[in-house]
Each structure stands twice: as C-alpha cells, then as structure tokens.
Design a protein around this nucleic acid. Sequence first.
RNA 1: GCCAGCGUAGCUCAAUGGUAGAGCUCCCGCUUUGUAAGCGGGCGGUUGUGGGUUCAAGUCCCUCCGCUGGCUCCA
Length: 649
Amino acid sequence: MVRVILPDDSQLEFDRPVTGLEVAERIGPRLARQALAVRLDGELRDLATVIDADSRVQIVTHQSDPEAALDLLRHSCAHVMAEAVCRLFPEAQLVYGPTVENGFYYDIDLDRPIRPEDFPAIEAQMDQIVQADEPFRRREMDRQAALAKLRAEGNRYKIDNAGRAAGDTLSFYVTGADPNGRFEDLCRGPHLPSTGRIGAFKIMSIAGAYYRGDAREKMLQRVYGTAFPDKKQLAAYLNQLEEAKKRDHRVLGRQMDLFSFQEEGPGFAFFHPKGMIIWNEMVDYWRQVNRRAGYQEVRTPIILNEQLWHQSGHWDNYKENMYFTRIDEVDYAVKPMNCPGGCLIYKNRPHSYRELPLRVAELGLVHRHEASGVLHGLLRVRQFTQDDAHIYCRADQIESEVVAVMDLAFEIYRTFGLTDIRLELSTMPEKHIGTEDIWNQATDALKGALEHKKIDYALNPGDGAFYGPKIDFHVRDCIGRSWQLGTIQLDFSMPERFDLTYVDRDNSEKRPVMIHRAILGSLERFLGILIEHYAGAFPLWLAPEQVRVMPISEKTNEYARQVLNRLQEANLRCTIDQADDKINAKIKRAHDQRVPYMLIVGPSEAQSDTVTVRTRGRKDQQKWPVGQFIQIAAQDIARRRLDRVDSAG
RNA sequence: GCCAGCGUAGCUCAAUGGUAGAGCUCCCGCUUUGUAAGCGGGCGGUUGUGGGUUCAAGUCCCUCCGCUGGCUCCA
C-alpha cells in the first residue's frame, strides 16, 4: 500500500504504486487536466513518475506553482526547439539547453551558421511537434550503459555532460509516438507530460557562445527562445520589450540631445550641453554629501610614468586593459585606476595616527581598453569618470568605515530614487597580489560589515579586484541587464607596495589599510542608468530644462518674456517657445522633450500676472501667481524632490 | 577579441541588379492661434570606407570602420 500526503496534510491511499497523474486523477479531473509535474517530498519530478513509497506529493500546475511550471515549460520548449533544429540540420550536435530568466537557450554545434531567417522554419517545425502533442518519456540507464550509448553516438559534448552529472543513474528524454522515440536527448529533466502543453513560444535571437564559457574552446551557436503558458502572456512579454526599448538610454540620449558617440572615438562619450547640466547637478550633489561625510577631494594626473604601474601591480595584472604612450623617450601609461596616483599624494608627507581615517575622494578620469564587442552606450565605455575615494585607516577602523560607506551609498541612491539595489561580495581571483592570509582577513572584515548591517548579499567567488575583495552594488537596466554601480574594495597590498605609513601613538611607523570605494561607480554609467530609470523624465532638480514658457500667440510674447526673466532671476533653467505654432504643438513638443513644467500664458494670464501651469505627466493645469510658482519650484529643487513632477521611475 | 545581424537625408524608415523616395526636423511664407502635431513651399544624399563582379550596384562578392544582440571580460 502507498500512502500519499497532500500539501493540506490530507492523505490518500493506493493499493499499488501510482503515477503522479493517477494521484491527480484521484483528487479531481480538473486538476488532472492541469497537472504538469509533481513535487515528491519537495523534489520536482515528471508527472509520470511512479510513486512506490509513502511520500508527500504536490501536483504542480500553473496555478499552484507558477515559477516551477514556467521553468518546466521553457525547459521542455528548449527540447522541442532542439529537435526542430536537428530535423532541419541533421548534422547538428546538441550541447546544453537550460532555462534563463526570460526564456531558454540551446547551445548547438553546427558548422552552418543559423540565421534569423531560419527562425520561421525552426518555429514551423516546433509548431508541428507541439501540435502532435507527443509525450516526453524519461528513460533511465546506469552510468556505464549511458556512457557507452553516448560514445557510440559520438556527441563529445553530451559525453562530457554525462561525465560531470552526479549519481549512478543518467536519464534521457524521448519524444515521439513509437516506443523507441524519434528524438532523444540526455537530460536531467523533469519535463511537461507532453509537447502539447507548451503554450506560446518564440525564437528570439542567435548568438555565439564559447563551449563551457571558455574563450579557448570552440564557439557554439546559442539559440535563444522564450515560452509562456499562452499567447497573451507571450504578447505581453514582447510588448514589455518594446516598451523597454523606448527608455533605452542610447535612444533617449539622442532624442533628448544629451550625449553622442562618434566613429572617431568608439567608447568615448561626447556630452552635449543638456547632458552636462545633468552631469554637473550630479557632481554638485556628490560633492555636497561627500564633504559632509568627511571626505577631502584631490585630483591626480591621467598620464603617469609606466614605472608606477609596475610598482602598483597593474602592469602584471591589468596591462591588457591599459593604454600606453611615450613622452621624450620615456614610457608612460594612461591611468585605468586612480589609486596609485592617490598613494603618491599620501606619501608626499608623513601622517599621524590622529589623521586616520583619512578619506580622500577624487572624480578620476580613467581609461580602460575594453574589448570592442562589449561597448554599450554609456554603460560600458573606454573612458569614464569614477567617483572614487580612498580611505586610509587602521585595521580596527575597517568595519565602521565600510559601514559608513554603505550608509552613504544607500543615501545617495535613495536621493535618485534608486531602491532596487543588489549587493555582491567578491572574493580572491586567480590573478591577485598579497597572501591568502591577508585575503581571508580582508574578506572577513567585509563580511563583518555586511552582517553588522544585516544586509542580504550574494557571494561571487573569485571575482574580487586583483588587490583585494570587494562589495559591489548592482542595479538592473531597463531590459533586465545588471550593471555595477558602487564598489567597496579592501586593500592591504597597495599600502605595502607603496610603503605607506603613519606614525602611531607610540611613535612607531605603522602600515595603514586602504579602502577603495566608488558609489555612483562611473558617472557615465550612472547617468545612463538614470536616463533609463526615469525614462528621460528627470526630476526637477536634474532636468536640463526645468520650465518652458509658452505664449498662446505672438500677442503675449512680451508678457512671456517678462515671466522668463523672473524665472531666470530665480535661477530656474528655462526657455521660451515663441514659435509660430498653436499651443497644441508647443505642448506636444515640450512633452516630447520631457520638460517638467509648461507655463502657458495668454492675454488672461498677462492681465492677472499669473501663469497656467501644466505639469509633465498630467493633463490638468492650474493658474498660479508667477511668484508662487517660482517659490514652489525653487523649494522642490533645493530639496531634490522626486515626486511632484512625474518621474517615470 | 569571437559568433550572428545591421549601416540609405540631422532623426525614423522606403526603394524585383535598371532615373535614390516619404514623414518628422530645419529654413521661408500664410495663419495670430487656449491645452499632446494648422496649411503651403523649399533646403537636404558620391547610399559607412576601399576594392571587385556586371552594359548597369543602395541591392551581389571581398577588405576595413562603426553599431546592435550575445559570448569572454568589466565601473
């Protein structure tokens, strides 16, 4: 007898082993129709799995367990796509086909390139397979037999996969009506009961991907697809992608005339006047809070003697990313980081323990030779400005300093309305300087700070800077890609290399610890993220143009100019639209340019010394005395208020 | 850097290997405008670069440059 315990703790009894489907049928026909898989004692398994011992069973449906159901669906769809590709290209070798955040991909080794124009043919084959509603059948073999079978078939990737799979039993999935199946793939599973349960799918893109992510390995073809329970959800997802494209900072940057890139300087941004306004507002704010947090500011040269970079370790660990030049027969390097220059300032005079922690900030312009294929608008460039700082302190001050930097970072992010931030702790990479002991000590200090703050974080092993472990702050762009903003890096090595010292209370020379930190990260990247975050609708304090005065006709141009003067005297960034257009056209233009406030003036306003205020993102408008409008706007700017005008974030 | 795709007017996009075109922007008129695009006219191109195939190339082939999506890498 088999006893099955359901999630509500009720029990079902069967006089023989049963499948998940039979359990669902016993509960009800509707559940049986919706059932996609089972959780056996919490573990996700095929619906056809035979339950031969007492266990807890949960029937997985789109309703009961949407995440697992979607994952099953997508993974099964990856198989269907793989089969479709193999039908069209029998010489294709399948490699690996997992689900990813918004769909799935399958890596395929095929000498003929798969092109976007092949997608309809692949999708047509997939349609056939789905229409046929064929069962996915699991076939288990012991490891020896499975390996023998795979060797006979000669797919080196699957042999490799099988070799790395855990356990003594390997599984294959078969689709196709006849018992031997038509299509079979080594796979851990589980799957949907049958191909017909895949709702709506679409092949999205094709990309090269190195086998096992190793650039020395063969480049495979990675076909990306997505799938949803029904057409409506697929359409909603595609629509969401379209919407995301509209807030892409590269599109908005051009439309709003904020910045540009030119062929003459790939990866080097050109900032236009409106972009510079936002930039300068960011910097003003940054200076203000950093000063308050006890930072001093310095500025170090962009080009420094190559010898310095040997001393710092950058030559050995970072030279692939550096630019070099010669001046008067002497070798120089363009700085990729600010720390060595900062160390030279520190060394310029002796320091007392009384000065520590010494917090030194720098808006440092760095150059890094990034691979051409990774450049991406403002988010990945070859020249950028870090809001860097180096904190020189004693070991016992590390934790409180790191905590203070985290507090400062969250305060700054909050000012910009960024609240969806993820933290990562990165540990010692292969290429590094300093002993393992020092690394452990530094890593523990960072962990201590995180735990002290009770902040959730992900561990990112082996991803630290070459000189120390780090805590990174990440935020997502509008299409879901994650970008690093701030970073806090602990460094015991640079002080050693540069022989940095301070004189302690007992008159002995001691070695300070260095904390490298950036909060905005790169001003370029941060601006890019902000553009996407606000969808171009910047809050008043950041908006390149804060107010636009719009006369109804030429008859009120004179009054409009008087209003403009008063706005200018109040330091508001404002323009006047005197074009020979109807007010509708002016409003449309101002909306397109995302101007926060439109002040509409006609004869009636001129008579009463008022303006009709139309606020971005709203249709209603109010008539206000000019002075009152100026007062409210000035106050919102001073407070860096985010919410009075609609910011799309 | 690697794989695939793309590159036509300032912008968004058309053009079976056969005379490069539209809308918007911009300029000039008309209109004097009341809450998300008034009307008319005009300017604007050696089709990213260099080569090749062809009677003929925006279109086909090759080189280089740039961009897009991934991969490796990274703030």
